[in-house]
Design a protein around this nucleic acid. Structure first.
Length: 589
RNA sequence: GCCCCCGUAGCUCAGUUGGAUAGAGCAUCGGAUUUCUAAUCCGGUUGUCCCAGGUUCGAGUCCUGGCGGGGGUGCCA
């Protein structure tokens, strides 16, 4: 089973092939002129230049080849050679009856050849998560859902930033505050206290200050870098201290991710790869791939035919410390050995695109990842406040993610009270609804934008709950649930989907047939906004249907049964699509 | 300096391999409710798609140059 578009593309692809053209010219798209037709094929125009033939004549031959088919009610040639296509109402209904029986709503599985590793999350130890981490987690989880749904085993990995210079900064800062602690005694080998010397709150307070100082004071920075090298070399006191840093941070991070409804299969941070980095660098040196340059060890990645200069990937600083490129490379090696994936996707800020270009090239050059494995940096844009600059609180601080989420949930709850929604329900259900609505608002606001573009995060604006928003989609689905509940009370059940008899019905049915195509495009182009657009369009079509077709009041039992089946399918598809986007539908709102 | 991305309605943004009359949401104006929950729906208004060339039967989309904004650029991540 497939989308209407795919079915039609098959038919027209075959017709183009039969006429002696490439199959791909038979691509059918959703009509841009719904007043004229439902679908169109523009292949005759595309092929006419190469074939040096009149596009209208080509179109005529194709239409003739397709001939009369049960799927189609109408074909015509328009303008310079567009083929306009309408589906037969009976086929529309028959197809949707199949879709309604399919738990996957018509989307085929197994389209991606192997396992997919998705790298997202990636927060840093001791740095609280803020609004910037929202995109990362939301987009990453959406991909994880999408590929999982398309039938690929997915490994989601939270690549924790727990091993860089910021660790040295923290160690130095704490050494200055509490030099009496045993961790700083160079000769000490432990044991160390069982209790962490700092709380997460203290750690989060220490880090920004330490970072500021190191940036301003070269000597402080030098000390931090020295501590980093010593940590990486296994100095016992530092390792013990570092472990506490990681432990208290991870506890906080887990709480934040849980609040956000995001989970990972693995939490393999950079530190996990220390031994592998050592081995890898030694090997690359031995193979002659890694070279010394200006005191550091680098892996050149430029290629013949490059139109621009790609700097080499740095593997080791002149002071002996590894860099994040080193750990990324070692991580790739580990992932190939451990998971043997067909695809590895990095959901990381788009500003790191040069870095990933370097890492990917290095991985190919060093034979770590074969060309057959797709490496993709799915970069995303930044989140800005209403002033176009990074999102801040009124006090000017970056707002912490946990606080932001609490604020969103609280506002959603208020809005429910204002609207008088679910006020007769128990308190925990109301909280649950507020959480689902708040999360949906956040997720949809993020995902409906194209991944690579920056967007403005205006909390007041999207908490309006109007227009193209997550709550709108949820509400549409809740309306359906409500009708189905009432129908069940009246002992009415869905019947057989029949051919449409009104525009509202037909448009709803067409939208219901488009789901597989939008899921596929979203996955292929790593663009969740495509799925968002589809879901919004379906919700709009349903709300129009809701206005025009009063299901419970309908006298004709067969028609009522068909309508119930139709909205049941609409709910199933919305549940599926919103689920892929990470949105849960409450029973009422 | 060099490289990358972006510039579309008053605002925030979509725009499928180049296709017909460039679309949404917000805002604004007007209308619909004895409701299947109005967190809804319907209608009106809004454009030198940054500018100038070029390729093409056809350009928001591709190429060149310019202007404006953002980002990156071997010892942070």
């Amino acid at each position: 089973m497939a989308s209407f578009q795919a079915i039609l593309t098959d038919i027209f692809g075959a017709a183009f092939a039969h006429c002696g053209f490439e199959r791909r010219f038979g691509q059918v798209v959703i009509s841009q002129r719904p007043d004229l037709c439902q679908f169109q094929c523009n292949g005759a125009l595309a092929v006419s230049k190469a074939a040096r033939q009149n596009p209208r004549e080509i179109a005529a031959r194709v239409v003739d080849t397709v001939g009369s088919r049960e799927e189609l009610s109408h074909m015509s040639i328009a303008g310079p050679g567009f083929i306009n296509i309408n589906l037969a109402p009976s086929f529309l209904a028959a197809h949707l009856r199949d879709v309604a029986r399919d738990p996957r709503c018509g989307t085929p599985a197994g389209v991606i050849p192997g396992k997919v590793v998705i790298d997202y999350g990636g927060p840093n130890v001791a740095k609280p998560m803020h609004v910037g981490h929202l995109r990362n987690a939301i987009i990453g989880q959406c991909f994880s859902n999408l590929f999982g749904f398309l039938g690929s085993p997915v490994v989601s990995d939270n690549h924790l930033g727990d091993w860089g210079t910021q660790m040295g900064m923290l160690i130095c800062a704490l050494a200055e505050m509490h030099p009496e602690l045993p961790y700083f005694d160079a000769g000490s080998r432990g044991p160390y206290p069982g209790q962490p010397p700092v709380s997460i709150e203290e750690l989060e307070a220490i880090y920004p200050e330490a970072n500021r100082r190191c940036k301003a004071d070269p000597e402080a920075m030098a000390r931090a870098q020295k501590a980093t090298v010593e940590l990486q070399n296994g100095r016992p006191g530092y390792v013990a201290l570092w472990k506490y840093f990681v432990d208290v941070s991870v506890e906080r991070l887990k709480a934040d991710f849980e609040k956000l409804g995001v989970a990972f299969d693995r939490w393999l941070g950079e530190s996990f790869y220390q031994k592998r980095m050592e081995d890898l660098v030694a090997r690359l040196k031995k193979q002659g791939l890694a070279k010394e340059s200006e005191g550091a060890l680098v892996l050149p990645v430029s290629r013949d035919g490059d139109t621009r200069e790609i700097p080499p990937l740095m593997l080791m600083k002149s002071d002996g410390a590894f860099l994040y490129g080193t750990s990324d490379l070692a991580t790739l090696e580990f992932r190939m050995q451990e998971f043997n994936p067909s695809e590895i996707i990095y959901v990381v800020d788009i500003r790191q695109s040069l870095h990933f270009e370097q890492v990917f090239r290095a991985a190919r050059r060093a034979g770590i990842v074969p060309e057959s494995v797709r490496l993709e940096h799915a970069g995303f844009g930044t989140v800005n406040g209403p002033d176009g600059r990074p999102f801040k609180t009124r006090e000017g601080d970056v707002m912490q993610l946990g606080d932001l989420l609490d604020m969103v949930y609280a506002r959603a709850y208020e809005r429910m009270v204002e609207a008088g929604v679910a006020q007769d329900r128990p308190e925990d259900e109301k909280r649950d609804i507020a959480r689902k609505v708040g999360l949906a608002a956040l997720r949809f606001a993020d995902l409906q934008n194209h991944r690579t573009s920056d967007y403005v995060f205006d909390i007041e604006k999207f908490l309006q709950f109007e227009g193209k928003t997550g709550p709108y989609l949820l509400y549409s689905a809740v309306r359906i649930k409500s009708i189905l509940r009432n129908a069940a009370e009246k002992r009415l059940s869905p019947g057989e989907i029949a051919a449409p008899q009104s525009d509202a019905e037909q448009n709803l049915m067409l939208a219901l047939g488009h789901l597989p195509a939008s899921v596929r495009t979203a996955a292929d182009t790593l663009a969740p906004n495509v799925l968002c657009d589809w879901a919004y369009g379906l919700a709009q079509q349903f709300n129009r249907f809701y206005r025009d077709c009063h299901v419970l009041r309908e006298k004709d039992a067969r028609r009522q049964g068909s309508w119930l089946a139709l909205i049941r399918l609409a709910l199933d598809e919305l549940t599926l699509a919103l689920g892929l986007l990470g949105m849960e539908i409450p029973d009422r709102m």
